[in-house]
Simulated assay, not measured.
Amino acid sequence: MPIGEICSHLGIPRSTYYRWRKKNETETSRQAIERKIGTLCQENKFRYGYRKITALLNQEIPINHKAVQRVMQKYGWQCRVKVKKRKQTGQPYYIADNLLGRNFQTDKPLQKLATDITYLPFGQKQLYLSSIQDLFNGEIIAYSIGDCQDTAFVLDTLLQLPSLSKGCILHSDQGSVYTSYAYQQEVKGKGIIMSMSRKGTPADNASIESFHASLKCETFYLDELRSTTTAIVEQTVENYIHYYNNIRIQAKLTNQPPVQYRQLAG
């Protein structure tokens, strides 16, 4: 039957029916968007705030960040990550000048690198993570996991680096492993220019400090893995680094993951 006849039999105006249908379609659309937001939050283990969830949604449908924020607040889907900071450790032996000067910007890959060590106190024994980050896109290009924070440990990470162009800067803190004779000789042998943070100033190496904080906050603290096995700690770190490099979007990279940003820039 035509809509007009149905409305006539029911004794209601046609405008009432169309108003009801429009409202019903709007409700269905809103529910679909809420489900999509919930799915994205769960897929990313509640590591993303509303801005990054909005960026992911905008790849498919246009939506305002305030609408996304309201939905996430409504259902308690906000980012559950809290940044954990640690104090810088290590006694300096040889100190290089701070050539980076907190200028973390560069327009080419493998021109400015940053390295640091962080604690992984979540397994059956104390582990450490040594990482080297390309400041062009934040990509982790070398890393080592070990139970001894010595010079051999950081040399293992350094030796993973590919061939570097002349003038590449590697920035670290003043830890004794970085100021050691063996490390400095290997750095010079690779044609790398060494740069070091000022003593007690972790902000001078903020980019890789931020990566290490994100790694722990978005895995061990978020999933409450405070006491687990050594194998799980190692696998968690390896999985996160792959996720960070290839999947995790970053606002400063126009909401792309590091590897994709590098590939498109190249």
Results as ranks from 00 to 15, higher is better:
E25Q: 12
T54A: 09
T228P: 10
S29I: 13
R21V: 14
V187W: 02
I37T: 06
Y244W: 13
K125T: 12
I37L: 08
A265R: 03
G191T: 02
K74D: 09
Q263M: 12
V83G: 13
L135F: 00
L120I: 01
V81T: 13
I208S: 01
F220W: 04
S210G: 03
I232N: 10
E34R: 09
L161R: 08
S163R: 15
Y119C: 05
T201C: 15
I241M: 05
Y243L: 09
L215F: 01
L225V: 09
K74L: 02
Y48I: 06
Y17W: 12
L129H: 11
P257R: 02
N255V: 11
A231R: 11
H65F: 00
D156R: 13
N239E: 12
G200L: 03
S165C: 11
A182P: 01
V259A: 14
I117H: 01
R14V: 13
L10T: 03
Q160Y: 05
Q78W: 11
A203F: 14
T157A: 06
R70I: 07
P62H: 08
A213W: 06
R35K: 14
V259C: 08
V259M: 13
A265F: 09
S163T: 15
S197A: 10
M72I: 04
A114M: 02
R86H: 15
E5H: 15
M72K: 00
F46I: 05
I247A: 13
K84V: 11
D173L: 00
Y181E: 14
A206H: 08
K112W: 00
Y119G: 02
I145D: 11
E234Q: 14
Q174R: 05
N255K: 08
G146L: 09
R80Y: 07
P62T: 04
G167K: 06
I3G: 11
A55D: 02
R262T: 07
P62K: 06
K66T: 11
R47D: 00
S207F: 03
E238F: 10
P202Q: 01
G101K: 08
L56H: 05
V259N: 08
Y261Q: 04
S207L: 00
R70A: 06
T254I: 09
K190Q: 11
F104P: 00
T115A: 06
Y18V: 09
F153G: 01
A203H: 14
C217T: 12
I132C: 02
